[in-house]
Design a binder for these strands. Structure first.
Lengths: 349, 349
DNA sequence: CTTAGCACTCCCACGCGCAGAGTGCTACGT
DNA sequence: ACGTAGCACTCTGCGCGTGGGAGTGCTAAG
């Protein structure tokens, strides 16, 4: 990892940096050498802290707004802080109970669980929660249904994990009830195939099939294609954005607007998450300018995958200002992702 | 209507008021008597305008922030302005083309149309768009499907207008494949009934049915109940909220937060829309303190129903700051609602 | 009823000085 | 070599007063 490349800070520098981050996150005000000297148990004077701070500034972990103000962390400062955090952050009892309470209810529909989890996360952290639902690619199909709605036709695909994709199309000319029944029969043979496999199979069937059949099967293939890639592949879940709008979060107005804009452009947001997702293991933290988008929002992203066993299903996490309570937010995301994984494994059986 | 109760303003007062509103909306700055005298074609001096303004202030249509500042409209001022607007606001050619372009694509899925329309509205107006999809109550059911997903069971309901409701439940003990087939057969008899009627019918069937049947039918009834009322009855569609976050809209930070909060609490938002919806006819405009919620946000709401023939399907509209370009926003909402109604009528055949 | 004129009020931008906070540096002690 | 006390320095933020300017309200004349 990148943090191993850097010259390792001495333990005291590190302690000072962490103290600055923590205090700044708590108060939102630049922090002075004196307050660190007092409140943070290193038995040294403010002058020493000042020296350390100057060094940390030289190393690009801190800045000042102006000469005679306290220090605030840079993105790199936050990064060091995050990397030096103990792996298992504590949750407060109230939070623990919130999570336990939420997952105690029997929930079976993945989509529903995700919206709930996102809300849970946004409540826990006071930032915005977000989730990327599983891709349909590898989900086995339980049923494909062709529904005659008069002038139009609905194609309905039900996946093993509870996803339902639908598409409404104009009924092709010259398609009779017989064609529908026949197509329906063939579509039933897709059961058990994954969305991807089913797509390939459909194209093959369509090539073989008669005229009336071909269009219908192609429509179904199209439905699967839309479900697996592009536009409506899977709706991202976002919640608690109002948390970010508040005064306290002190996000700048136009960065806030840009963040919201991106959140509304699902594809773009998915792209960002894809960029930062495949990091090492459990938890991925992206701070400010570490990614162009988060840099533009002056925000940070904490995400974690949720999985059944070894296979990753999706991603869940939070967005907040770079001045974020990383410790607690990371603990929350980690905890929710863990419970979510357990739940998913259980549903999957 | 309320505006008929008030002493009718003279035509010149009205003109002055409207000029003030228009200029304030455009510039965002308090407007002076002089600028009105100059730019608004009434051939009178600023002194006269001042007198009129004083009178308008007395009547509560205007205020000033302080003694020597220009005037800004009160909510009542905006109200008068809106009420005196010509019924058919003009759209700019570019807007007209945007709308035409959007509706030119053949779209058949109502849900999809609504998200598209909401985005369209938010682009047209630069405010946030929102839509309430049709209630399922009166929608005829096309199909009810019981899908065996192993340990769980999915109940799927498809409505005539393309809505799909699903619920996943744990499979009750002792339900065999035979029970499922039998229940499935009975559920097919619901075809053509509305969601509401089907619910009643199901309860009746459940009462008659055998043990294995009862649970399944009750689950289906529950799915219908959830679809028609309460929590997930129908997901409100919201789009373009980032438009409101921008500097230009000059919405206060904490009112913005409150607005977002309400938008996130779907039920509450639906309540607000229900309160203001049933106004007279085409377009409903709610300005600031005219409704407690809009008052709290210092925002205005412009909504219009969309319908097939006589029956109202749902509502579509925009939210923006009270300092809103009502003329153009109203024209946009009206136009989109109209096209939407045409489209819905056409889909409905 | 309109309007020119004018006094008045209030905001706002500016300059000023000052207290306070916080730093950087230097010199001293261990 | 490292920590620390002390001190000068710098910069912000605030209060204050001041002047310009914008815009009003009023009055008196047409």
């Amino acid at each position: 990892m990148a943090d191993r490349d850097r010259p390792e800070l001495g333990p005291r520098k590190s302690a000072v940096l962490c103290a600055v981050v923590e205090q700044y996150v708590r108060t939102g005000e630049p922090v002075s050498s004196e307050s660190i000297a007092e409140h943070s148990g290193l038995g040294v004077s403010s002058a020493t802290i000042r020296n350390e701070m100057a060094a940390l500034e030289e190393l690009n972990f801190l800045t000042h707004p102006h000469t005679s103000a306290g220090r605030i962390p840079t993105d790199a400062g936050y990064r060091h802080y995050v990397d030096s955090l103990p792996a298992g952050g504590r949750l407060r009892e109230a939070q623990r109970r919130l999570i336990a309470g939420y997952f105690a209810e029997a929930i079976v529909d993945l989509e529903e669980v995700l919206t709930g989890s996102v809300q849970l996360l946004s409540r826990l952290t006071q930032y915005a929660g977000l989730a990327v639902p599983p891709s349909a690619d590898e989900e086995p199909i339980v049923r494909v249904e062709l529904i005659d709605m008069g002038p139009t036709l609905m194609i309905l695909v039900v996946g093993q994990h509870g996803r339902v994709d639908k598409q409404v199309v104009d009924k092709p000319d010259g398609v009779g009830a017989g064609d529908l029944r026949e197509a329906d029969r063939r579509l039933r043979t897709l059961r058990g195939l994954t969305y991807l496999d089913a797509q390939a199979r459909l194209l093959q069937l369509a090539a073989e099939g008669g005229d009336g059949q071909r269009d219908l099967l192609l429509f179904a293939a199209e439905t699967l294609r839309i479900a697996t890639q592009g536009e409506r592949s899977a709706h991202m879940v976002v919640g608690g954005v109002s948390n970010l709008a508040g005064e306290a979060q002190q996000m700048r107005r136009d960065t806030l607007r840009r963040l919201f804009e991106t959140l509304e452009r699902e594809q773009e947001m998915l792209g960002v998450l894809a960029d930062i997702g495949p990091s090492q293991g459990e938890l991925s933290v992206t701070i400010g300018a570490e990614h162009p988008s988060t840099g533009e929002w002056e925000a940070s992203l904490i995400t974690a995958p949720f999985k059944t066993g070894q296979t990753t299903l999706g991603t869940i996490g939070v967005v907040g200002p770079t001045r974020m309570d990383y410790l607690s937010a990371m603990a929350s995301v980690r905890a929710v992702a863990k419970r979510l994984s357990e739940l998913a494994t259980e549903i999957d059986r």
